[in-house]
Design a protein around this nucleic acid. Structure first.
Length: 468
RNA sequence: GGCGGCGUGGCCGAGUGGUUGAGGCAAGGGCCUGCAAAGCCCUGUACAGCGGUUCGAUUCCGCUCGCCGCCUCCA
């Protein structure tokens, strides 16, 4: 029912999922110190699709995703903007959820903040110190990675090589460059919490372990995040659990990054989008979802104005199908021939949904699933052209259901049409009936300038906002 | 420097050791339409280069070139 590439196993492996057991998912969330960018959007969408796939299969999912609200970058931002770190974190967390909502991403079951877990983190660090896998240095407490027997599970390269080439930051008292901070002693004016080692704040890698174990328990099903988190973040997370003999993630999933057009750096001046917030102001959020779906999650993906335009066009094709074959009664073109709304009671074509689901189950092959979707669109339109409304309706219903499954609601319904626009449409209809096509075309131009597109169908003229 | 990944038609993007190359966008031709729009039908000498393995490679192996990521900021 689901196979995913597992970073630890370095291959695609089946996951143990079923309707009778809770699927426990942990996704690394954001550090809230700036506006989310398009890459964050991809991350949100990839795991949203995974979750919707499972839930659509009837699998209950507990989805935990943290919010890092205490961190060096937040502190730096606060200093540069003359605000408190708390205010910075609160503001950008709000922006994060706003963008997530606009994308139509389901909120996690739990979204704990790091600052809500300080005591638990101190407790875990104390355990690590007691187990002698962590030690105190002048500026904090470090985990001694050399004492974790399976350190490097997620990291293909030999740790010796890794040590050799890396920028090595010399920290007095650190026993190995690979050792990482569990607790950072506070400098003056920095946010601080009490601890047995002095006032300070937790290192970044500890919150996820503590939250995952607390909210999901040991041996949870899947831990996910961007490839950039594979090392050191995820390696270090699991090192802590491993050092204490706790079972951690059974499966590790990493999605690839987003690139700008042609390797160009994303910049507003280049006409690219940099923040997700900006992007969502410019394009239909569903178009970005479709763009993300059309790339496999383990492949880098390009986000450019051209790519977004492409996705927008594809989305318009889906919406056009919904408009033609799924629109509720009323002004929908009815009857036989080239149009007709779906006859009631027609079920979604099961073969389409089956093929669609099979693609998703196969390492989240969303490009394949999209191909199934668009195949069905063509078949539905062809059936409708041939007057086979029953087949057309079944296929259209399947398209609608499949798209909705991955969080892509289609817009087939008539938009609210202002009275003035309706009047222009009516006048144009009268002109056409009178075969005064010059007048009809002038009215169509007028509607276009007002942002409305007209389509003449056997059942009458339809208008819609020209952007849709 | 080390490690990993990628290079498929105008663009995006799947996929496969073998007579017939998913899907989308764009383009050209046709049908439909008063004209459009939407839709349908048709149209594409692709797999970076060079070697190797093989009866046969785009698909496996090696090398070269190019691009990208990671090597304790990072989705």
């Amino acid at each position: 029912m689901l196979a995913l590439y597992d970073t630890a196993a370095r291959g695609v492996r089946s996951l143990d999922v079923g309707q009778d057991r809770l699927f426990r998912l942990y996704v690394c969330g954001p550090t809230v110190y700036e506006l989310p960018h398009v890459g964050h959007g991809r991350a949100l969408l990839v795991y949203d699709v995974l979750r919707r796939y499972l839930e659509g299969r009837g699998v209950p999912v507990r989805h935990v995703s943290n919010v890092t609200d205490v961190d060096d970058k937040i502190i730096a931002r606060a200093l540069s903007e003359g605000e408190t770190p708390e205010a910075i974190a609160a503001r950008y967390e709000e922006e994060w959820w706003a963008a997530s909502d606009r994308l139509g991403v389901l909120r996690p079951s739990s979204a704990p903040r790091a600052t809500e877990y300080i005591e638990e983190m101190v407790g875990l660090i104390a355990e690590l110190v007691a187990a002698r896998v962590a030690y105190e240095a002048p500026d904090g407490v470090y985990l001694e990675t050399g004492k974790v027997s399976d350190y490097g599970l997620l990291t293909p390269q030999a740790l010796a090589d890794l040590r050799a080439g890396a920028r090595v930051e010399t920290v007095a008292g650190k026993r190995s460059p690979l050792d990482f901070a569990l607790w950072k002693l506070a400098k003056p004016a920095e946010p601080a919490w009490p601890s047995p080692w002095g006032a300070g704040r937790p290192g970044w890698h500890t919150e996820c372990v503590v939250m995952a174990l607390d909210l999901l328990g040991e041996d949870f099903d899947l831990h996910a995040g961007g490839t950039d988190l594979r090392f050191p973040h995820h390696e270090n997370e699991r090192a802590q659990a491993s050092a204490l003999g706790r079972g951690f993630a059974r499966h590790w999933m990493h999605h690839e990054m987003v690139n700008a057009a042609g390797g160009e750096k994303m910049a507003r001046s280049a006409g690219n989008f940099t923040t997700l917030t900006e992007l969502l102001d410019e394009v239909d959020p569903r178009a970005y979802r479709l763009l993300v779906l059309r790339a496999q999650y383990r492949q880098p993906m390009e986000v450019s104005p051209a790519a977004l335009a492409d996705a927008t066009a594809g989305l318009a094709r889906l919406d056009a199908l919904a408009r033609r074959l799924l629109a509720p009664g009323g002004s929908a073109p009815g009857g036989s021939g080239s149009g007709g709304s779906a006859p009631g009671g027609i079920a979604a074509d099961p073969a389409v949904l089956e093929r669609f689901g099979a693609c998703l189950a196969d390492d989240l092959d969303t490009p394949g699933a999209a191909a199934v979707l668009f195949d069905a669109v063509r078949a539905a339109n062809a059936a409708a052209d041939a007057g086979d409304n029953e087949t057309a309706a079944g296929l259209a219903r399947a398209v609608e259901a499949a798209a909705a499954w991955v969080g892509l609601p289609l817009r087939g319904g008539r938009a609210e049409v202002p009275e003035a626009i309706q009047e222009l449409v009516a006048r144009r209809e009268r002109a056409r009936t009178a075969r005064d096509f010059a007048a009809a075309d002038r009215l169509r131009d007028e509607l276009a300038r007002a942002g409305w597109a007209v389509e003449d169908t056997p059942a009458g003229s339809l208008v819609r906002p020209s952007s849709a």
